[in-house]
Design a binder for these strands. Structure first.
Length: 307
DNA sequence: TGTCCACGTCT
DNA sequence: AAGACGTGGAC
């Protein structure tokens, strides 16, 4: 790949990015906490579904200390409708870890109150290794936080970025590996922010917006990525039952203020612990549900269990 | 009506 | 390293 070709590509993406720029609410802040929340919400989720939910979350849990102090059931409750509950529980746990880190930092710099949001923001991790050590933050989310909150260069590979590189450099080619894409992403990301119109933040906004546009107008090019996988069947799956159970528990808690906080939190932690594993014990869901039914919290209908 | 599809993180 | 994980819009 010669440098003229790369320069032409960069110019094209920047131009497209300008034309297609989306003025999304989480792009009008530099608060790393707010951007972190948006990145996690946007994992596997369309922009249209996050818009509104992000704002609501920010009202309810405006900063790291608020989120860390929240009850895990309230965090789940706020998350309902976004899918993949484990992301909400990871957010909650990560916030608590950040508080722990801030606490130990403030022992060394006592002039800062460790409870203050400003202190935490200035201590929000910006190194890849520190970000990735938090639950729910992988390579992509870490790079996104670095670019959008701190304007720092990284290799940000997610579906829209894949789409652009697949479309521009690998037309027609199938099963393109991430290693091939990463090499190009690394080569093209601006490494210093001296030119304000061409920095990591603007660069990745442009890539995201151009990629989203390509997905709308073409058969999704990112299907040609080697990482693209067909999802397993939802109907009749454990995760369908688990989702129903969480919904019912939260509904019961909202409506009747029954179910004490602690037992619900324990149950939800259990749920979190088991997520991602296929070894959930047989009959566990129906057992919990029939116990709840005995206490009059829910009942079985033709459509399934209801609160 | 159901079936397919959107996909990053974790184990 | 293959597969689980939630929800709702598109068709």
């Amino acid at each position: 790949m010669n440098s003229e070709k790369l320069a032409a590509f960069r110019k094209r993406v920047l131009e497209q990015g300008k034309l297609l720029y989306r003025d999304l609410p989480w792009r009008n802040t530099r608060d790393p906490y707010a951007i972190w929340i948006s990145e996690v919400m946007l994992q596997q989720t369309q922009v249209s579904r996050v818009d509104g939910r992000w704002q609501h979350w920010m009202q309810r849990f405006p900063n790291v200390p608020t989120l860390a102090a929240a009850d895990s059931a309230d965090v789940l409750d706020e998350w309902q409708g976004l899918g993949y509950n484990r992301r909400a529980l990871s957010l909650h746990r990560a916030a608590q870890q950040l508080m722990d880190r801030a606490h130990s930092d403030s022992e060394r710099s006592v002039e800062h109150a460790f409870e203050s949001a400003e202190f935490l923001d200035s201590h929000f991790p910006r190194e890849i290794a520190d970000l990735v050590s938090l639950p729910g933050i992988g390579a992509a989310t870490a790079a996104g936080i670095r670019a959008f909150a701190f304007n720092l260069p990284s290799i940000y590979v997610e579906t829209n970025v894949r789409t652009v590189f697949l479309h521009e450099f690998f037309p027609e080619q199938h099963k393109v590996s991430d290693a091939q894409l990463i090499a190009l992403v690394e080569k093209t990301c601006p490494a210093d922010a001296s030119n304000p119109a061409d920095d990591p933040r603007s660069w990745y906004y442009a890539l995201l917006d151009y990629g989203a546009y390509l997905k709308k107008t073409l058969p999704n090019p990112s299907r040609r990525s080697a990482t693209h996988a067909k999802q397993s069947q939802f109907e009749g799956s454990h995760r369908q039952k688990r989702a129903a159970l969480v919904r019912i528990l939260l509904q019961v808690r909202r409506d009747k203020q029954a179910l004490d906080e602690l037992s619900l939190a324990l149950l939800l932690n259990e749920h979190e612990h088991k997520a991602g594993r296929p070894d959930v014990e047989k009959g566990e869901f129906s057992q919990i549900l029939s116990e709840l039914q005995k206490e009059g919290f829910c009942h079985k209908t033709a459509a399934g269990w209801q609160a």
